[in-house]
C-alpha cells in the first residue's frame, strides 16, 4: 500500500482499525462495542487484580504443561512412526483421524475421567497439540536426506548417532512448523477447555464478563488472549525462519 508515494508498512492498518473501533464506540454503534480507549482503561484496571493473576497463572500453567507433554510425546512418536514401519501403519490412521477431528467433543469425556479442573485443561491442550506435532515430525524424518544418513553410516556413526546427529536436525524445520501449529492449537485448547469447564482460568473470566455484560473488560481480555496467541506463534515462526535456510536447501 502506498500513500502520497510513501510505502506504508502492512501492520499499520491495525492502527486504522483501532481508530475505527474508537470512533464506532463513541458514536454508539452498538452497546457491545465500547470505545477502544475505555477497553484499554478497563484492561489497566483488571491487570493488577488478584482474580486476573490467578486466571493467568492457571491458564499459563495448563498451556505450558500440556505443550511440554505434547512436544515430548509428539516428537518421540513422530520419529518412531517414521522409522518403525509397522507402528507407522497402525498408529498413522489414528493420528490422521485426530489431527482434524473436533477434539472439543472429547472435553466432556475428559471431564468425566479426569474431573472438573486443571488436569482436564492440561489434557485438552495436550490433545489439541500433540497430533500435528506427530504428523509434522514424521514428515520431516521421512524427508530427511538419504545420502546424509548414508554419509553418517559411512563415517562410522552408531545408530543413536544417526538419530541425534542427522535425523533430528534434518527434520528440525518440519518439527518447528508442527510445534508452531501445535502452539496455536494449544492456546485454543486452553480457552475451549476452560470455557467448557467454566469455573477456572480465563475461560471463567470470559463467561463472567459476558454474563454480566462487562464489555470493556471482555474486550480487554480478548485483546490480551489474542495478543498472547499471536506472540507465541510469531516467536516460534522466528525460530523457524532461522532454520529455513536449510529447509529450502534440501
Amino acid at each position: 500500500m502506498r500513500l502520497f508515494g510513501k510505502r506504508i508498512p502492512i501492520g499499520a492498518s491495525l492502527l486504522v482499525w483501532c481508530a475505527v473501533w474508537e470512533l464506532a464506540g463513541r458514536v454508539g454503534v452498538s452497546s457491545i462495542f465500547p470505545p477502544l480507549s475505555r477497553v484499554v482503561a478497563a484492561g489497566m484496571t483488571i491487570l493488577p487484580t488478584e482474580k486476573f493473576h490467578l486466571a493467568v497463572e492457571i491458564s499459563l500453567r495448563s498451556f505450558a504443561l500440556g505443550m511440554a507433554m505434547a512436544i515430548c510425546v509428539g516428537i518421540t512418536l513422530g520419529i518412531l512412526l517414521a522409522r518403525v514401519e509397522t507402528l507407522g501403519r497402525i498408529l498413522g490412521t489414528w493420528v490422521n483421524v485426530f489431527v482434524s477431528a473436533p477434539i472439543s467433543a472429547l472435553v466432556p469425556v475428559l471431564m468425566g475421567v479426569l474431573g472438573i479442573g486443571e488436569t482436564t485443561v492440561v489434557a485438552t491442550v495436550f490433545l489439541f497439540a500433540v497430533f500435528v506435532i506427530i504428523l509434522d515430525t514424521e514428515v520431516g524424518i521421512r524427508k530427511a536426506d538419504r545420502s546424509l544418513i548414508e554419509m553418517a553410516r559411512a563415517f562410522g556413526a552408531r545408530n543413536y548417532q544417526v538419530y541425534t546427529k542427522v535425523l533430528v536436525w534434518s527434520a528440525l524445520p518440519e518439527m518447528l512448523a508442527g510445534i508452531r501449529l501445535a502452539a496455536i492449537r494449544g492456546v485454543k485448547g486452553v480457552v475451549i477447555g476452560q470455557l467448557l469447564i467454566s469455573i477456572i482460568g480465563v475461560g471463567e473470566l470470559f463467561e463472567l464478563y459476558s454474563k454480566h455484560f462487562l464489555m470493556e473488560e471482555f474486550w480487554a481480555l480478548v485483546i490480551l488472549v489474542f495478543a498472547f496467541a499471536f506472540l507465541v506463534s510469531e516467536s516460534i515462526a522466528y525460530l523457524e525462519r532461522r532454520v529455513e535456510y536449510y529447509a529450502s536447501a534440501r
Binding site: M1, S13, L14, V187, K188, V191, V202, V225, F226, S233
Partner: peptide
Amino acid sequence: EWLSVPVFVILQAAPMAA
C-alpha cells in the same frame, strides 16, 4: 489486502472460541 491481512493473520492464530 493492506487493510485486512494483519487482522486475519491475528484471527487465524487467535482462539476465536473466546
